[in-house]
Design a protein around this nucleic acid. Sequence first.
DNA 1: TTGTAGGCGTTATCAG
DNA 2: CTGATAACGCCTACAA
Lengths: 375, 375
Amino acid sequence: MTAMDDGLADPTGAGAAAPTLHDVAREAGVSVATASRALNGSSRNVRAENVTRVREAAARLGYQPHLSAQAIAKGSTRTVALVVRDVADPYFSSIAAGVTQAAEAAGLIVTMAVAGDSPERELQIVRTLRGRRPRVIIVTGSRIDGAGTREALIDELREYRTAGGRVVLISQRDLPFGTVTIDDHGGSAALARALLGAGYRRFAVFHAPPALRTSRDRHEGFLSGLAGADVPEPLAVETGFTRTGGYEAARRLVERGFEDVEAVFAVNDVMAIGAMTAFRDAGVIPGRDIGVAGFDDIASTRDVVPALTTVAVPLHEAGLSAMRLALSDGEPLPTALPATVVLRASTPPRPHHDLKVMRGVTAMGHDHLPWTSRH
Amino acid sequence: MTAMDDGLADPTGAGAAAPTLHDVAREAGVSVATASRALNGSSRNVRAENVTRVREAAARLGYQPHLSAQAIAKGSTRTVALVVRDVADPYFSSIAAGVTQAAEAAGLIVTMAVAGDSPERELQIVRTLRGRRPRVIIVTGSRIDGAGTREALIDELREYRTAGGRVVLISQRDLPFGTVTIDDHGGSAALARALLGAGYRRFAVFHAPPALRTSRDRHEGFLSGLAGADVPEPLAVETGFTRTGGYEAARRLVERGFEDVEAVFAVNDVMAIGAMTAFRDAGVIPGRDIGVAGFDDIASTRDVVPALTTVAVPLHEAGLSAMRLALSDGEPLPTALPATVVLRASTPPRPHHDLKVMRGVTAMGHDHLPWTSRH
DNA sequence: TTGTAGGCGTTATCAG
DNA sequence: CTGATAACGCCTACAA
């Protein structure tokens, strides 16, 4: 018999097993049932002395209830599963913060999964998540048309719901589930009108591939806001949905020559901010030589120079609404969040144009002019 | 007998229960054991015909294995639990992205929990997390001295580790666990030397309450980098660890008068960026009227004007390292990540001073000068 | 108030 | 290769 066999060494390397309720019960000198009741159940019907005895035993052993076992025994969990495309993107992290806050208030724990750009991975993640039997699954991020996973995703979520789960989608309309949408179309249209009102006439739009629903909605919304005004067709520049995408698009625009463009609308703020930096790098001063506007109103819009004109969407609120929707009884009605135009210094007024649209365009460069989008 | 009783209606509102392995087995006409093997076990030893039969049955029923049940039966999970203070902070979301990437490569799923500013909540979260029996727990964020939860947290993590779990901390030294640290002290010292080299002599430091370890380390590091140089004691301004904190500190500094300050070191980038905006709002131009430097090198540093001088820390890499540490066998050695000074336009050289320190300070305003911190 | 026993969905062991 | 059956850790009637 060697030293390895005497029980002191731990050949498996796994360490001592975590103490179970049985251990606690034995340590406290009561039955498992009593221990269970004392720790997690309605401790009404257990003698006070035993309660403390059990609590002390649990503390002494460092006992933590095995949540999986509880989940199995009780048939339900207290978790919310959140699927995002990218944690590092302020758009998603703001939503996540809202979801987390609301979940916490409801005594639920949020677990977050990152899908990346791949719809296949998103589908796979939803599948896996389903296995954890969360109370709620929230999926955020634009649907991508033609990815071929749409039906499969719907099936997966539908089955989950049939089994008693709550599904809420953020920023994905047209799917048969509770939905929190952002008024991409209306917000962009309102922005277009506001820019017309500020004297801009000739635009470029930096957009992502139209398969990306959010990008397309914002692009189309912008065009529809221009409709009726006597302006040339905006120049459309397709690029990535990221800061780098915006940077590249701006670089290309400068190379091409931008004499026919007075202002750029980038379909999100990180693109717009990347574009501003690219313009600056090329010696083109945003706000003076060219107007720039974005969408989302992320925190950085106030720290760049000039401050970025954008469309504010209540991201944090979207997270809260999603949880509210998930927890509400009855058929969840789609919630639409308003988008608000915020004119800042990146699109100063151009008074040398005839203003035949809009009135009251005065305090440019100030925050929160009340151009709420319709709807 | 009413319509409510015929089984079509669902009085509980819970919907149909999720199909179990039993259902699949029955549907496929095999035993549960075979079904289990066909779906999740080593399917080597099950007839091909039965495998397809089971697979089809599972698909038909929309079956998803109950992960909690698997966890219980197998005695282990494939998840990594990550604790952060704030998802919306780019510092944490970069780390989270790194952790997620590495975990995914190892076939693990990351669940993220948000602790907020409260150490008590952090402790409570670690407790709850422990109940889920993850393979790994990663805790990020600066320790807060004097919070009183330190010992309790250590106990909790120690017990978790004893039960076979892996613990890794990011950015918290002096705790008896695997640790990935950022060289806060050395990076700040290197920054101080670089600024001296650029001709700056009189500084202010915007820092958070010293109980916040990260803030204190960076502050002290900066002072130690100044040691030996013939410069006045930097003005210390205490404020919040956030953008707003930086904004406020700058506002106060301007109010007080900043004739005796040539450059400000804010202990993180969001503070520095907030400060730049405050300066600008007060008519003080950063980079011209006053130098500004931060710490972390978050993405926005390149988009603000002037671009922000900072100390780059490989946040994404920190996440990767943490997972590597967690998955490695044997005693996990502390990993220290280097911090690199990056001089940009927010601290242009001041050639009118005597340069008695540093050489080679040439290409100011360019990225990635190789001022790696010692250590 | 307490203990006994059965069950939750899955895997693993051990005969067939 | 397959099928009973005993775990896994916990909860909860039911009975004492």
